[in-house]
């Protein structure tokens, strides 16, 4: 099987600053859900930014192949069009731009880049409403400006809605459970689980095992000091919940 994502000996730092990713290797096959767990400050969020191409991070070594192309050569919007989606830990607010308009622009920008026919307004509205229903997102929330005045739970549901509409091959969920109460957590994980399919993969970044009760991973990695130090099955998450990260931090250092 051709891997969906292959990270080989990746090194990265904050531009002009500290080295954060330090010789990381990871292979994700189509259809797999991988969890990355690790202590605060291990570089988990940086990993998601480096993969999605956020300015301000510099790759100093290694390579990342995504669906057969060198991901690091693409701009953030090209990576998105290739099918890489980052579910933000802290989604940004865009005042004055309605949620529906944003979804429309995003979906069609990607389609255009891929040379696919664009969605008409009625097509999009229908699709968004259908998905919205599954996530408890009402019409009012679609009219409001993107994330402005949304509660933590609404923001995360909105991220999930974007993901379901854009149908990415790889979704990176960065602390998807932060700021969520248990009901919202169920709604969001349910949305993510609906996305699972033999060609779609997920990379779930989290501190806590809790989220993994709802989004059950195929593989769990321990991430410390900028690289993966241990890999196991889903039971590893439970083990970590009991023992903590200390032993791996020592290992990494």
């Amino acid at each position: 099987m051709t891997p969906l994502l292959e990270i080989r000996d990746l090194h990265a730092e904050i531009a002009g600053g500290r080295k954060i990713i330090n010789g990381m290797n990871l292979t994700i096959n189509p259809g797999e859900v991988h969890a990355i767990m690790g202590p605060n400050g291990a570089g988990k969020s940086t990993l998601s930014y480096v993969l999605s191409g956020k300015p301000g991070y510099e790759v100093t070594g290694g390579e990342v192949i995504f669906r057969g192309v060198n991901l690091l050569e693409l701009s953030p919007d090209e990576r998105a069009a290739q099918g890489l989606f980052l579910c933000f830990q802290y989604p940004l607010e865009i005042p004055g731009v309605s949620n529906m308009a944003f979804l429309h622009t995003a979906a069609n920008s990607q389609r255009k880049q891929r040379g696919e026919p664009e969605l008409t307004s009625p097509e999009l509205v229908r699709k968004v409403r259908e998905l919205g229903k599954k996530l408890g997102i009402d019409t009012d929330m679609l009219k409001r400006p993107v994330n402005v005045g949304f509660s933590g739970g609404e923001k995360k549901r909105n991220e999930t809605l974007q993901m379901m509409l854009l149908e990415p091959y790889l979704s990176i969920l960065d602390e998807a459970d932060s700021g969520l109460d248990i009901d919202a957590l169920k709604v969001v994980s349910n949305g993510v689980n609906l996305m699972r399919s033999p060609e779609r993969s997920m990379l779930v970044i989290t501190h806590y095992q809790r989220l993994l009760d709802y989004i059950v991973p195929d593989v769990v990695h321990v991430f410390a000091a900028g690289r993966i130090v241990h890999t196991g099955g889903k039971e590893l998450a439970l083990e970590l919940e009991a023992t903590g990260y200390a032993q791996y931090q020592n290992e990494a250092a």
């Binding site: 999605s52 191409g53 956020k54 300015p55 301000g56 701009s75 953030p76 919007d77 990576r79 998105a80 069009a81 989606f85 980052l86 933000f88 989604p91 940004l92 865009i94 944003f102 622009t105 995003a106 979906a107 920008s109 990607q110 880049q113 974007q162 854009l166």
Partner: peptide, 15 residues
């Protein structure tokens, strides 16, 4: 902000 532009670009919009 760069963050706002990055958010939009991550969803597929050019700069």
């Amino acid at each position: 902000s760069e963050d706002m532009l990055f958010y939009c670009m991550q969803r597929g919009l050019s700069q």
